[in-house]
Design a protein around this nucleic acid. Sequence first.
DNA 1: CGGAAGCTTGATATAAGTCAAGATCCGTGG
DNA 2: CCACGGATCTTGACTTATATCAAGCTTCCG
Lengths: 211, 211
Amino acid sequence: MAGEPRARSLKQFRRFQHVALAGQPQNTIYRVEDGWAARYQLLSDDRRQITALFLPGDYCEPQLILGELADHPVMAMTNLRVRPIPIEELRAGPISSHDDIRDMLTAVLRALNRQTDWIVRLGRKTATERVCGLICERYDRMRANNRVSNDRCALPLTQYEIADVVGLTAVHVNRVLQGLRRRELIELQAKRLRIPNPEALRRIAGAPNAA
Amino acid sequence: MAGEPRARSLKQFRRFQHVALAGQPQNTIYRVEDGWAARYQLLSDDRRQITALFLPGDYCEPQLILGELADHPVMAMTNLRVRPIPIEELRAGPISSHDDIRDMLTAVLRALNRQTDWIVRLGRKTATERVCGLICERYDRMRANNRVSNDRCALPLTQYEIADVVGLTAVHVNRVLQGLRRRELIELQAKRLRIPNPEALRRIAGAPNAA
DNA sequence: CGGAAGCTTGATATAAGTCAAGATCCGTGG
DNA sequence: CCACGGATCTTGACTTATATCAAGCTTCCG
């Protein structure tokens, strides 16, 4: 295996394994190759909020470039393959990395915008709007990654996990999903999602960046 | 006045004036010198969510460095003085700006972390925790800017505006504030804030980045 | 085939929202 | 300097969205 640099450079995690632990200084940054991961935060009681979902193509924790530590745990939501990128490599090079840095900067800014959208959803939207928002966002990103085929894609989250993204209770998420199914806006089972009419769903989610 | 480059390079806005309008391509980025500004987003009905508060020292919309447009309006919450920084100046230089870019990058990453904290608050915290969170965050940042003297600083937001930050109703914000006053955790009048015991308040707000 | 994790549903509780009316503060024009 | 009018704040009565609790059901994996 020493002869296969590509394979050797990948790292695997199983579902629920921690990719990064709180407070750990980190010397690599990961690019997700396959699977989903989530960054989250726990409160004193058992409340949990997921603050980011990473899917293939995402840089996991690009904050690290600047040497801040990973202050929030990141966990694999599915089996996961990631490509470690040593931070040195990014920082050290003369400015060779000019383009790399720019790429990563773009990623950070995208993340910033997505977070802004989540602030709006969590602050001002109803349960149904939030759930539709999540579904649409993920669907669109999966499509951008070429992972949608005839209206279908993976949504590898339990209802509990969805609840921790949208800031609701699992019970209530369930009721909202039932409602959407009844209205035939989504099909969702066994973590496979189908959206017959994305336009309609987006309308319910509400303009994500309406002016 | 042509002889005063410093004065000439400042720009002034009055309360409620727009610093940046939605969808407008922007060729300068502003560094706040004095006053507060807010970025917000409106939904179809009249719901509004404030997604960022800028105070002196902040770069307003550093996203722009990368040439994305300002897709959310930014409005002066007080009379405001800002220093325009032409984007060209930042981008054009060979890489002269290596340090500038790094500064700004740091600013962006800080913004990202602050947004993450807001996601947690909006998703999983009670009204009181959110309000205390806002107050603590602002107080700390004002202190970092040397704008706190004997436990006092400015908090130039109406209760309606606070509501649009914390994702609540103005009426409910009022009741929460009453409660905090009754418990002698804050004094707040005429947009001046005093926190007799910051530690206690922080405890109520809940660890902002608890692991 | 058994057991845990996940999903569904119902009954009830509660935090926050809505509506409405007064009270207070504050800047402006006379 | 005062009086007015519009923002802002305060309070109360009532409604509603979402949470909580609890139980039964289904699916899936070892």
